[in-house]
Design a protein around this nucleic acid. Structure first.
Length: 617
RNA sequence: GGUUCCGUAGCUCAGUUGGAUAGAGCAACAGCCUUCUAAGCUGUGGGUCGAGCGUUCGAGUCGCUCCGGAAUCACCA
């Protein structure tokens, strides 16, 4: 079982390329020259700290001069002034500078930004890198459901994170394999099966008009309920609670079922296949609604055998130890971990066995460079053990296994508990978000003139956009609170806000085509942009580096927050200036181009999050 | 108890390799639609960045010690 809820363990810190602005590069060269000319010495890159100028100061980029004072042997202020003077005199792109304490604020000529916009516009898949033949292959495992219950809110975070990570890694130039491990065997499945056999009267999901996963889940719940009753009865009759749990008739039956299943009993296996089939049909609907996909799905019922063979082989090779009772262990005390069980004394597989097998099969299938497991932080220890065990068994590629450990989703009242019925069902939640989006659209009088099908599609996009953004904007490693009332908010820092900004831009572009057809294609690099326009261009300029950073940090939240910043900045520009109403043709074309590009980047950013961008809303 | 993670405004969250006066949204209050979509824009109030010590020219960010919360330490998954 992979994703009930959930810490961080071995997130590999990929060394980050410094964000290389085109302008930052130019400045670096200029500053190096300045230092050489002023103080006859070379300056290392690590001393050149260039950052964006904060809003409250005049300028675009800022050089922090404290680190340079040992070279200049002057005060930070004096150092800043001398470099600033040199840059202003030697670089055409530098239109001015000011110095505040040890900070040299450099102003870039507005015309430079217009040229920058023009060159961004000329790149067709701006921000995305096509995987080259030699690119890294990354396997990403996410979702990983049990087949005894429908998906819930915890799975939603998992699926959204996994899917978004897969797109981000692809956009950053890796080859990505999306994969899933279905935990389709074990005692929990047998519980549903027993309950269905005893209480189901041969009914099927369609008889009750239910999704298959919900149908099967109901029997699992029924099992647990009756089982609890039985244990209570036994305790009342004098058993200890422990004995009662072991000896309740239902539990005995489930155990028998598991043994029969493992022995390949025909009837049991066909019942198992039928019920799992129902569940898969249900899951498919949910996955489709969420918009997530997989390239290859693995089943624990198939991989656990490979795992067992691996363990036995490794035992022969002397990497493992067998205890008197026949159980097989790996001793990880040298790695400051415990001894860990790999096979039970009766020879059956445990959770770890299956994962060992799955990893080896996957490596043989894809020869991945990295394998990312999107699994809750409650399983940190498990994945630590998994990676080390595989390395001990002689698989050096296990160094590429990476546990993407994300935090739990909690409700305002606390943790979700199935006992107390506070589990938020995935299908219900999706339906609710769509319904809210529909009601909101109605209330605001949007979507007039659209067909019913179009309206439904747009409302679905908005509802899901709200849900996905709400979850993805939070730093994955942190536990998050899911507040139902807040999640359906469509104002402020939300998915619909970004979608709305995109739809507005599309609307302007359409109108532009009708009136001033296609003129934004013209080159407009000789426009002098205003401050708001420059702010937007700066953000657009950040996008490619941001995609790389999000891939390296494995953080959809970076993309989400960037999209919000860009949308907000654009809305300010949109509010303050007219695009189509601008009389100066050059300026109008420039603004159209700025808008068009913002739309494109927003659409790509949303794409990376798995959020659709509606043309109208 | 061991290990790991988290703690920033009333609430939900941002905060770049350590940089300037710590930012958004929600909630509250006050404004802006004859003009490209008001799901928008503008303004006001709101903080001992859990506490302390240290490193540094400079700490929300790095180190140590506490305090508070969470996860994990199964012949469960």
């Amino acid at each position: 079982m992979r994703c009930n809820s959930g810490q961080i363990v071995q997130k590999e810190i990929l060394s980050l390329q410094p964000k290389l602005h085109w302008m930052e590069n130019l400045l670096r060269m200029g500053i190096r020259e300045a230092v050489r000319s002023l103080w006859r010495t070379d300056v290392g890159d690590e001393l050149l700290q260039i950052q964006k100028t904060r809003k409250e100061f005049e300028g675009d980029l800022t050089l922090v001069t404290f680190p340079l004072t040992r070279l200049s042997r002057r005060s930070p202020e004096q150092t800043a002034v001398e470099i600033g003077e040199y840059l202003a005199g030697h670089l055409e792109a530098v239109s001015g500078y000011n110095v505040i304490k040890g900070f040299l604020n450099i102003a870039i000529a507005p015309a430079e930004w217009a040229r920058r916009l023009q060159s961004i516009a000329s790149v067709s898949s701006y921000g995305f890198i096509q995987a080259s033949p030699g690119a890294d292959t990354v396997v990403i495992e996410y979702s990983s459901p049990n087949t005894n219950k429908p998906l819930h809110l915890g799975h939603i975070r998992n699926n959204l994170l996994g899917f978004s990570l897969s797109r981000i890694n692809e956009a950053a130039g890796s080859k990505v394999i999306r994969t899933n491990i279905v935990n389709d065997r074990g005692i929990h499945i047998c519980k549903s099966m027993v309950a269905w056999q005893m209480f189901g009267n041969g009914r099927k999901p369609e008889d009750e008009g239910k999704k298959g996963d919900h149908f099967v889940g109901d029997f699992y719940v029924m099992f647990e309920k009756r089982y609890r009753e039985q244990t209570e009865e036994l305790v009342a009759a004098g058993s200890t609670p422990e004995e009662a749990r072991e000896n309740a008739p239902l539990m005995l039956e489930a155990r028998r079922m598991l043994i029969k299943w493992e022995a390949g009993d025909e009837q049991t296996v066909s019942l198992w296949q039928m019920m799992n089939g129902w569940v898969y049909e249900g899951f498919d609907v949910t996955y489709k609604a969420l918009g997530v996909e997989f390239d290859k799905i693995y089943y624990e019922s198939e991989t656990y055998k490979t795992g067992r063979e691996l363990v036995l082989k490794s035992l022969e090779e002397g990497h493992l130890i067998r205890k008197e009772d026949g159980s097989v262990w790996i001793d990880l005390t040298a790695d400051k971990l415990d001894q860990k069980l790999l096979l039970r004394s009766d020879g059956t597989a445990v959770y770890m066995t299956q994962d060992l097998g799955t990893a080896v099969i996957r490596y043989n299938d894809f020869h991945f460079d990295r394998h990312i497991y999107v699994v809750g932080n409650e399983q940190n220890y498990h994945f630590q053990v998994l990676a080390i065990t595989l390395q001990r068994m002689g698989y050096p590629w296990a160094a590429g296994l990476h546990h993407f450990s994300y935090g739990m989703v909690e409700l305002p009242e606390g943790r979700m508990k199935s006992r107390e019925g506070t589990v938020v069902d995935a299908d219900d939640l999706i339906a609710e978000m769509t319904a809210t989006a529909t009601a909101m659209s109605q209330e605001l009088g949007k979507l007039g003139g659209y067909s019913q099908a179009e309206k439904e599609n747009i409302c679905r996009q908005i509802g899901l956009g709200a849900l996905k953004y709400y979850i993805l904007k939070v730093d994955p490693k942190k536990n998050m609170t899911f507040n139902p009332a807040e999640s359906i908010d469509f104002n402020g820092n939300t998915g619909p806000f970004i979608q709305y900004t995109y739809a507005r831009i599309r609307s302007v572009m359409k109108k532009a085509e009708e009136t001033v057809a296609g003129t934004h294609e013209e080159n407009c690099s000789d426009v002098i942009p205003n401050a708001k326009e420059i702010s937007v261009i700066k953000l657009l300029n950040d996008f490619p580096a941001l995609v790389q950073e999000a891939a390296a940090e494995l953080s959809p939240a970076l993309i989400a927050n960037y999209c919000y910043d860009l949308a907000r900045e654009f809305n300010q520009f949109y509010h303050d200036y007219s695009i189509l109403g601008e009389d100066d043709k050059k300026l109008r074309n420039f603004r159209l181009k700025l808008s068009e590009l913002t739309g494109r980047v927003l659409e790509r950013g949303l794409w990376l999050l798995g959020i659709e961008a509606p043309e109208r809303m």
